[in-house]
Amino acid sequence: MQKFKVQSIILISIAFILGFSEFIIVGILEDLSAAFSVEMSTVGYLVTMFALIYAFSTPVITTLIGPRRLQNVLLLLMGIFTIGNLATALAPNYVILASSRIVVAIVSGAAISVAMAFGTHLAPREKRAWLIAWLYSGFSVASVFGVPLGTWLSAQFGWRSAFYFITFLSLMILFLIKVSLPADFRQPSSGSNRLKAQLAIFKHRQIQLSVLITMFSLAGVYVVYTYLRPIFSTELRINTSWITIAFIVYGFMSLLSNQFSGKIAEQRGLITMPKIYVFQAGLLLLLPLLLNIRVLGLIDIMLLGLTMYLINSPIQLFVLGIAEKEFPQSLVLASSLNSIFANFGCQF
């Protein structure tokens, strides 16, 4: 059990560092704009570009993994991730910066998918929902704590220091992956036509519905999330000095959302979600009416944050359950579906 706890911390750390690297750009947009003399909107494209490349590259890489040892695959992906962040830290111009972010985006989705596969393999059945919830929470922790930390490092020591710090943490995680995760874990072989065998999972009706649920679930909430800053400042007329606090509170609500997601998965799973979606739809319908009442508007937004990720663990465990029984050769690809279609949903 002690070994499982250590392995769980390593897997959660992978999620954290991947989220830290992805989200930090939001906190240092102004610094990058000034450093490379480009428009803020141009730097902002890095965020959209990252999400799209993440979504498109992940299924390609996961289908190429096949029966290879997943520890070696994860070491390779995290090694490229580390080099990509070091290249970002050293970038002499905006083109190199953007190119390094593309490299990081290409491997990030596959890396968390392999980590999810490890989590499913290592966790006792009664601990799966807990570990999956914490893997998703790693991204929330990166948003709540990582981005403010990176922003502080950027303000104190320059924006490059944030990526040097990410590189240092990544090197530590690489070492821990090598010494702590099982070296012989791999997917079953899918035969000669490997690609066709892995993609067969998309023929399953419940898999098709699952990815649509994930995509439209995030698309609905991200309509609000994308415009949180103008909602806080213009609609709710929150003082500028309090907006950061509002974002931190929202981040904690998203962290709680992932934790409650695990609790839902442990109990009734997807059966509970229709009631939650009815509640979420009510919050979205009420929001325009409550924006004129600051306190009620804030409560509505924070409750939306609380419902934001409740689907994660139930849908992830549902998809992985289907993959284990019917498509074991597609385990890593199945682990990636939630992340892939969540990113597509975010772009709507």
Rank of each mutant, 00 (worst) to 15 (best):
227 Y>E: 15
48 T>E: 06
252 F>W: 04
310 L>D: 05
85 N>M: 03
109 G>H: 03
287 L>M: 14
184 D>S: 14
109 G>C: 07
239 N>Y: 13
185 F>L: 04
297 G>Y: 07
236 L>C: 12
250 Y>T: 06
161 S>E: 15
44 G>T: 05
6 V>R: 08
113 S>A: 15
120 T>R: 08
117 A>M: 11
100 S>Q: 08
156 Q>K: 07
264 I>G: 01
145 F>P: 00
205 R>N: 02
173 I>L: 07
77 L>Q: 02
212 L>N: 07
132 I>A: 10
194 R>W: 10
113 S>L: 08
189 S>G: 09
205 R>S: 04
39 E>F: 09
155 A>D: 09
120 T>V: 12
142 A>L: 00
126 E>D: 11
344 F>P: 11
347 Q>P: 10
268 R>I: 11
77 L>A: 04
168 F>L: 08
96 I>K: 10
74 L>I: 13
131 L>C: 03
265 A>T: 00
307 T>P: 01
81 F>D: 03
242 W>Q: 15
323 A>M: 13
106 I>F: 05
165 F>V: 08
211 V>P: 06
152 W>C: 07
317 L>K: 00
302 M>K: 02
216 F>G: 10
273 M>K: 04
27 G>K: 03
7 Q>G: 01
322 I>Y: 05
108 S>A: 08
1 M>C: 15
91 A>S: 15
119 G>A: 14
250 Y>K: 02
245 I>N: 14
124 P>Q: 12
284 L>I: 13
149 L>T: 09
280 Q>N: 09
287 L>N: 11
181 L>P: 02
126 E>L: 06
